[in-house]
Computed example of a mutant assay.
Amino acid sequence: MTDELTLDEAQKAITAGMRAARSIDQPMNIAVVDSGGHLIAHVRMDGAIKASIDISIRKARTSILMNLPTSALAEATQPGAELYGLELTSGGMVTFGGGIPVVRNGVTVGAVGVSAGSVDQDVTVAEAVAAKLAKAPS
């Protein structure tokens, strides 16, 4: 058995995220990347803002590159803080909530990025996607 995320898993997890987004009545952009930050799957739900396509992918990439939820970077990247300017590196990182690493069997195997709602809504949907992906396939 491999710990790498598959397209099938990513699509099923995105479906779980779409259910979560519908339950809060907020269409979302949902991205899943592999352990190298490469896009596996993405969806823009009907009505989700187009600017959030790029943001969702960047949230997922930021999360895997930093091995942290993007929300953990918010305070440290404010003006005068230790990591101020981080968002300008690596092709543009996102330092607010909605990106979550996917850990399986103690190994970070990918990440999720969600955008188009409030930060809290993005995090809620990202958590649903990440929870589905964290379960190893049977």
Rank of each mutant, 00 (worst) to 15 (best):
M1R: 13
T2K: 15
D3R: 11
E4S: 14
L5I: 11
L5W: 04
T6S: 15
L7C: 07
E9G: 08
E9P: 01
T15E: 15
M18V: 14
R19K: 14
A21C: 12
A21M: 08
A21V: 08
D25N: 15
D25P: 02
Q26C: 15
Q26R: 15
A31T: 09
D34Q: 12
S35L: 12
G37T: 13
G37W: 09
G37C: 12
L39T: 00
H42P: 03
H42S: 10
I49M: 11
I49E: 06
A51G: 11
I53N: 06
I53T: 08
I55G: 01
I57K: 02
A60P: 08
R61W: 06
T62C: 00
I64Q: 02
L65F: 10
M66F: 08
N67K: 13
N67C: 09
T70S: 05
A74I: 05
E75T: 10
E75V: 04
A76D: 12
Q78E: 10
E82H: 13
E82I: 13
E82M: 14
L83H: 05
Y84R: 07
G85F: 07
E87F: 02
T89D: 07
G92W: 05
V94Y: 00
I100T: 09
R104H: 08
G106Q: 03
T108Y: 08
V109D: 03
A111Y: 02
V112Y: 00
V112C: 03
V114C: 15
A116Y: 05
S118V: 07
T124I: 04
T124F: 09
T124K: 08
A126V: 00
A128P: 10
A128M: 10
A130F: 01
A130I: 02
A130D: 00
K132A: 15
K132M: 13
L133T: 00
A134M: 15
A134P: 03
A136N: 11
P137L: 13
S138D: 14
